[in-house]
Nucleic acid binder design. Structure first.
Length: 823
RNA sequence: GCCGAAGUGGCGGAAUUGGCAGACGCAGCAGACUCAAAAUCUGCCGUUGGCAACAGCGUGUCGGUUCGAGUCCGACCUUCGGCACCA
């Protein structure tokens, strides 16, 4: 047989596969469905190794499931709106669309060069009007359901990107995309009311049995649910009440002061009445001008200013000073906090600094506390109330609900659940995104663009300038419209939507990508969804995965689909690293997929990346490791070449008893491999061990390289081996199959185990003395624990090892070991 | 600070339910083939002692449970990731 030439055979097979008749997927109720999905890429122009890993994993899953009898949906598309296209327009004068589409073309070519089994007929590109028309339609749906609203708020602003950002897009106070420091700006912006679904998004995490725990925990922390008491304190001098939220109502008798955020609405009134207004105002300005990082760091110095006013603690009538401080987060709770220095570390530090009163209200049951000796707040989970009126003596957890009940009975407070999750800020002051379909009319106000006028298309008469306000505002064509309600001249909304909206529903569009009446047909989406296996990077643990869950729930409530969660199973792949760091241009450790594919072929690239590490863990790139994978494929090619005549002369149904002992052993290894590879693919996603098992099988077959092999066995071996290799290395498997057998390896049924082939009459078990391995011995397979215990003392090896000692005990594990305990 | 994950040869990693630690691969060493090289093939490859058979030690550290622990329990160390003034 000729040499293994990956470049030649890969091109040949890719041509066969690049045909709608070959890859097209249809609804088929005769088979169970399976939806395999990799996170669609941003069209940066080139695939990187992270993509290669992502798609290799997905392709194995999809191809395996097809062969295992499932009707598999495996689509691909592009998350094609976003800043880089616009930056290209600013710096090179290219149209964002031209830049994007040429990148997509290039990336599709690279994906095809990987031999990926996608239904290209279903490809979606979020920047095309036939897609974003429905993104806009969905915006209107949210709007009509009261889930989209515009309000003025202090929002996260990134100067380099010239736009606002969602909370989820601010990482350590910096922009997720450009790493520039984000600051607050007061702007009127569009929001999606994700907080309406906070409780369900949290609760339904329990349903996601197929998700990694850490992703669920990250979402749980992000949603940040807490239960507590909201109650109000009178401010007699101002004839006002201040509402506060606490998760520690049991400490309410220990309030000595109240801390307000500088943004708190009461501050205005304080300023108007205070003789010290100037100084207070100066303090507020100073805090507001601090960056988010300075303000929200728990390490930064706590500062505050006394307002001169007091409020009354409704529980005990005590007067408490009202302070304005830099450590209260305005956006959370009520923007005002009851301060209990003895039982909150921040309050303790603050009270110590400004010499404010401290009252001990929770005592340590194990070791009574002394206020004078306290150097930190007592925040343990055990405690008994003291100095707390009629609640004194009560265990703190009981006191929590008793005190809430008391506040409710006396009408100054109520039980309250709070979330850290904020509404999703979705408007962006950029061009390359889906325009928000809203028109502003002086008479009618905010008006939705009528459904029949969708899509609101992106105009091309725009100017691109660094940092300028949205380029859309420079388009005359776009801006000058008439009000759909009254027909008077009106203006368009010039903001576009966050690209995370486009990616929150793309997996639904794949189920019905050409629909021009609806975003997707309900029956189609219900047939294919939810996604059975979703594969992508951990970086989307919160952002995309939370937003998609939110979308699914809203669309369910709007009766567009009938399930609660979009992704049944989630696999978070590790990064591809080299020399201990993530591949990056600045570090110069980038390995380009193209280069590897050109040198060794796509099969080698896929094989190495799947073999080198378990999918969830980071993968250390090794050029020598790639060589090893290439060697393995050559070995497969060579050994099947040696067996060629035998394979062709063999028959499928044959008498196994005609095999000699060596051949029976090879057949046993073959069937053990079938069992292991199938389990690894179906249940464990352990592609690395599946491949190592296949390597062992090929090594075993290799023993027959220069001795005759039973032709029927050679045929059985080749068939099963190629079917098992097909999901991992589709081209070489297809090529070798076509040399020996009829049909298409990728259309074969998955391999089945012959349990009888695995069964052995004798099994080697271990003999331990006092837990240490001393001997190996062959015994009949399947001997019970009792039988083994009985024969153990009669075994010559045991007698030899225990000579002169007393046997205390014998432990036997069938088919595994005998442990003799001696003295 | 809180939450989570991980720690096994020179390296990537395996050991699925508590039962032979180091599968498979990389690198390395020795040999075969070759005029030579490449490719390929064969053998060795945790560590200490020993000519050897074999024995001792060995899965981050210390302790525990067990006939038996990489795996379970307790305490700790290190690394990575997420959240972080959320009252």
């Amino acid at each position: 047989m000729e040499k293994y030439n990956p470049q030649e055979i890969e091109k040949k097979w890719q041509k066969v596969w690049d045909n709608p008749d070959y890859y097209k997927t249809e609804i088929d109720n005769s088979k169970p469905k399976y939806y395999a999905l990799e996170m669609f890429p941003y069209p940066s122009g080139n695939l990187h190794m992270g993509h290669v890993r992502n798609y290799s994993i997905g392709d194995v899953v999809a191809r395996y499931r097809k062969m295992a009898g499932f009707n598999v949906l495996h689509p691909m598309g592009f998350d094609a709106f976003g800043m880089p296209a616009e930056n290209a327009a600013i710096s090179h004068g290219v149209k964002p669309g031209d830049w994007t589409f040429s990148n997509i073309k290039n990336m599709i070519a690279q994906q095809k060069a990987m031999g990926l089994d996608y239904d290209w007929d279903r490809e979606v590109e979020t920047c095309r009007a036939d897609y974003y028309r429905w993104t806009q339609w969905l915006f209107e749906l949210f709007y009509k359901r009261g889930l989209a609203y515009k309000k003025e708020a202090a929002v996260n602003w990134c100067d380099t990107c010239g736009t606002v950002l969602a909370n989820e897009q601010v990482i350590d106070g910096k922009c997720w995309r450009c790493d520039n420091e984000v600051h607050k700006k007061n702007l009127a912006q569009w929001f999606f009311k994700i907080t309406d679904y906070a409780d369900e998004l949290l609760k339904d995490l329990e349903k996601l049995q197929g998700w990694p725990n850490r992703v669920k925990i990250m979402q749980e922390n992000w949603i940040g649910r807490s239960e507590g008491l909201e109650f109000s304190l009178e401010v007699p001098e101002l004839e006002e009440k201040i509402s506060v939220y606490t998760t520690r109502p049991d400490t309410a008798f220990g309030i000595t002061f109240l801390a307000l955020a500088p943004e708190h609405p009461l501050v205005e009134k304080i300023l108007s009445k205070s003789p010290n207004a100037e100084e207070i105002k100066k303090f507020c300005e100073k805090v507001k001008n601090q960056s988010d990082i300075e303000r929200t760091s728990s390490e930064s110095e706590k500062e505050g200013i006394f307002t001169g006013f007091y409020c009354i603690n409704p529980f005990n009538g005590n007067k408490a000073q009202i302070w304005i401080t830099n450590y209260v987060v305005f956006e959370y709770g009520t923007g005002a906090v009851m301060a209990v220095p003895t039982h909150d570390q921040r309050d303790f530090m603050f009270a110590t600094k400004y010499n404010l009163e401290k009252i001990l209200v929770i005592d340590n049951p194990k070791q009574p506390l002394k206020l004078e000796e306290m150097t930190a707040a007592y925040v343990e989970k055990d405690g008994v109330l003291v100095n707390s009126g009629k609640f004194t003596g009560m265990e703190m957890h009981k006191a929590m609900s008793a005190i809430i009940d008391y506040a409710e009975e006396n009408n100054f407070g109520k039980r309250k659940v709070n979330y850290k999750l904020r509404d999703w800020l979705i408007s962006r002051q950029r061009y390359w995104g889906a325009p928000i379909p809203v028109i502003y009319c002086d008479d009618c106000g905010e008006v939705l663009v009528p459904e029949k006028d969708l899509p609101v298309e992106l105009p091309d008469d725009v100017e691109f300038k660094q940092g300028a306000l949205s380029p859309l505002s420079t388009s005359k064509k776009f801006n000058n419209v008439v009000c759909p309600k009254c027909g008077k001249p009106a203006r368009r909304e010039t903001d576009t939507m966050d690209t995370f909206i486009c990616s929150s529903w793309y997996y639904m569009r794949y189920t019905d990508p050409h629909n021009d009446k609806m975003p997707f047909d309900r029956d189609k989406v219900n047939y294919w969804s939810p996604v059975d296996q979703y594969i992508g990077g951990i970086e989307h643990a919160i952002l995309h995965l939370l937003y998609s869950r939110f979308f699914t729930k809203v669309l369910r409530d709007a009766k567009l689909l009938d399930y609660d969660e979009p992704f049944t199973n989630l696999l978070t792949q590790g990064m591809v690293i080299k020399d201990g760091a993530k591949m990056s241009k600045s570090l110069g450790n980038v390995v380009s997929p193209e280069e590897i594919i050109n040198k060794y072929g796509a099969d080698t690239a896929r094989l190495f990346i799947l073999f080198a590490a378990p999918v969830e863990r980071d993968l250390d790139w090794s050029d020598q490791g790639v060589e090893g994978s290439f060697r393995f494929l050559n070995r497969v090619w060579r050994i099947l070449g040696i067996f060629e005549d035998a394979i062709k002369n063999g028959v499928d149904s044959y008498d196994i008893n005609a095999l000699n002992d060596e051949e029976k052993t090879l057949r046993r290894i073959l069937h053990k491999t079938i069992k292991k590879v199938t389990e690894d693919l179906r249940e464990r996603f352990m592609f690395n061990t599946a491949i190592s098992t296949l390597m062992e099988l090929v090594n075993a077959a290799h023993n027959f390289q220069d001795k005759p092999i039973n032709s029927n066995l050679a045929r059985e071996l080749a068939k099963n081996l190629l079917i098992m290799l097909a999901p991992f290395v589709p081209h070489i498997a297809a090529e070798l199959w076509s040399k020996f057998f009829e049909g298409d390896v990728h259309k074969q049924s998955w391999v089945t185990v012959d349990e009888a082939a695995i069964a052995e009459d004798e099994v080697e078990i271990v003999i331990q003395i006092n837990g240490k391995v001393r001997e190996h011995v062959k015994v009949a397979t399947g001997l019970s624990k009792v039988e083994l215990e009985k024969i153990a003392p009669t075994l010559p090896q045991v007698q030899e090892l225990t000579a002169g000692k007393t046997i205390v005990k014998i432990i036997a594990v069938p088919n595994k070991l005998i442990n003799v305990v001696v003295k």
